[in-house]
Simulated assay, not measured.
Amino acid sequence: MTDNKTYERLYEKTIPSVVSIYVTPNDASRPTRMGAGSGFVYDNDGSGGHVVTNHHVTGGADEVELRFSDGDWRTGHVVGRDSGTDLAVVAVTDLPTYAKPLSVATDAPKPGQEVAALGNPMGLDGTITTGIVSGTNRSLPTGNGFTIPDTVQTDAAINPGNSGGPLLTLNGEVVGVNRARQGDGIGFAISGAIVSRIVPTLIESGSYRHPFLKISTVDVSPIVAEANGLSEPRGILVVDVRLGPASGALIGCEATRTLRGREIPVGGDVIVGLDEKEVRSHEELMRHLLIETQPGEQIEVELVRDGRKLTEQVVLGERPKAKGNGRIGITVE
């Protein structure tokens, strides 16, 4: 087990780069301080820079207040936000000189690896909690019908107020942006790979265009495989196909079959690969789309149709800003 000195050194090294974020509502009739979260310094040119946090921390605010570890306060301007990954970027023109940028990892951490979460849980500035990486490439719902892929699961305590703060390796590298949810000893963080993909675009243009296959899917579990006459539970069944340039080459389900008391969609394509990479689950499909592709690109979709393997060329659309379809067990890509 790692000794306390290691965590002490990690804390001393990184806490100057971690900020508490307070949001003031635009409505003057409401309390002057509405919510609190966390963030970390992403870049700093010596006078100004950017802080990364969660989109749900900043909400619709244009300005936020930031409190640094030495008690310095700054006003930040929200210059980019993406509800699809729950990330936001705050520009600060006069960052304290001691607030150095934290390095963001692009490789996923390994389950069992020790990590620490820093932030402002329950309004308690400068808090560190520790644990391990419990799992990787998890999917988290965003509340708009889509999910965030490639999230990191940890048993480090992540409570309200931790949202937006860094999940760090013992070397001080950011492997995730903490996202507080209700749970018993389970925390999640948006991966460094997603941060590295999304944040530069948010800084440059203020928003991010998500690729979209325009289909609804369900993972091929054993019961789905049985209902569709598949030899093994592998891949993703296309349930519905939306109209549009990205959907014409794929076929959805047109019927259902009742099996062991459950109604299972049948007859659609089964996606087993993208761009010559095997796809075994919804998480792998969504990670590839988000990190490796962009709207307007043509991708190769390897699939099984009527027992035959084939490859279709599909042009990706752009994800709409819409709520989910309300169907349990169905995921929209």
Score class of each variant (00 low, 15 high):
179 R>G: 15
242 R>Y: 12
261 G>K: 12
22 Y>S: 12
297 E>H: 12
275 D>A: 04
268 G>P: 07
118 L>G: 00
133 V>E: 06
79 V>F: 04
311 T>D: 06
275 D>Y: 01
34 M>C: 01
107 D>L: 14
326 G>Q: 08
288 H>E: 03
45 D>S: 04
231 S>K: 15
68 F>Q: 07
333 E>W: 01
155 D>S: 07
104 V>F: 05
282 H>T: 15
15 I>R: 09
29 S>T: 15
13 K>F: 01
192 G>S: 07
236 I>S: 03
16 P>A: 06
65 E>A: 12
137 N>M: 14
199 V>L: 05
120 N>E: 10
42 Y>A: 12
174 V>W: 07
22 Y>V: 07
53 T>M: 07
199 V>N: 03
16 P>W: 05
160 P>T: 12
193 A>C: 05
48 G>R: 02
4 N>I: 14
282 H>S: 14
311 T>K: 15
157 A>W: 02
303 L>K: 13
36 A>F: 13
96 P>I: 08
275 D>I: 00
29 S>V: 06
229 G>E: 06
252 G>N: 04
309 K>A: 13
199 V>Y: 00
177 V>W: 09
275 D>P: 04
220 V>G: 09
265 P>C: 10
156 A>V: 10
276 E>M: 06
202 L>V: 04
49 G>A: 08
252 G>E: 03
226 E>R: 15
32 T>E: 10
235 G>N: 02
275 D>F: 02
96 P>D: 05
4 N>H: 07
32 T>L: 13
224 V>Q: 02
126 G>W: 00
28 A>P: 10
223 I>K: 09
12 E>R: 14
142 T>F: 00
179 R>W: 00
125 D>F: 14
205 S>T: 15
266 V>S: 06
33 R>H: 02
53 T>G: 02
311 T>Q: 14
132 I>W: 01
310 L>P: 06
5 K>T: 15
236 I>Q: 03
173 E>H: 06
127 T>F: 02
217 T>N: 01
43 D>R: 14
248 G>P: 00
333 E>Q: 15
191 S>T: 08
164 G>D: 04
71 G>H: 08
78 V>P: 00
180 A>D: 01
24 T>R: 11
278 E>T: 15
140 L>F: 09
83 S>K: 13
17 S>F: 06
324 G>D: 08
261 G>I: 12
45 D>H: 02
35 G>E: 02
82 D>M: 11
315 V>P: 00
199 V>R: 00
198 I>E: 07
242 R>E: 13
281 S>H: 04
2 T>M: 09
20 S>N: 09
19 V>M: 03
46 G>M: 09
124 L>Q: 13
273 G>E: 07
62 D>S: 14
270 V>H: 03
5 K>D: 13
246 A>P: 00
172 G>F: 07
300 E>W: 13
300 E>H: 13
149 P>F: 13
77 H>D: 04
284 E>N: 08
27 D>Q: 10
177 V>G: 06
295 P>T: 12
115 V>W: 06
129 T>K: 11
90 V>D: 04
227 A>N: 05
125 D>S: 11
140 L>C: 07
318 E>Y: 04
143 G>Q: 07
157 A>P: 11
60 G>Y: 03
56 H>N: 05
39 G>E: 05
31 P>T: 00
97 T>Q: 13
155 D>G: 08
173 E>C: 01
203 I>V: 15
248 G>H: 11
83 S>M: 08
332 V>N: 04
320 P>T: 11
126 G>K: 10
93 T>M: 01
114 E>M: 10
127 T>N: 03
199 V>H: 00
303 L>D: 03
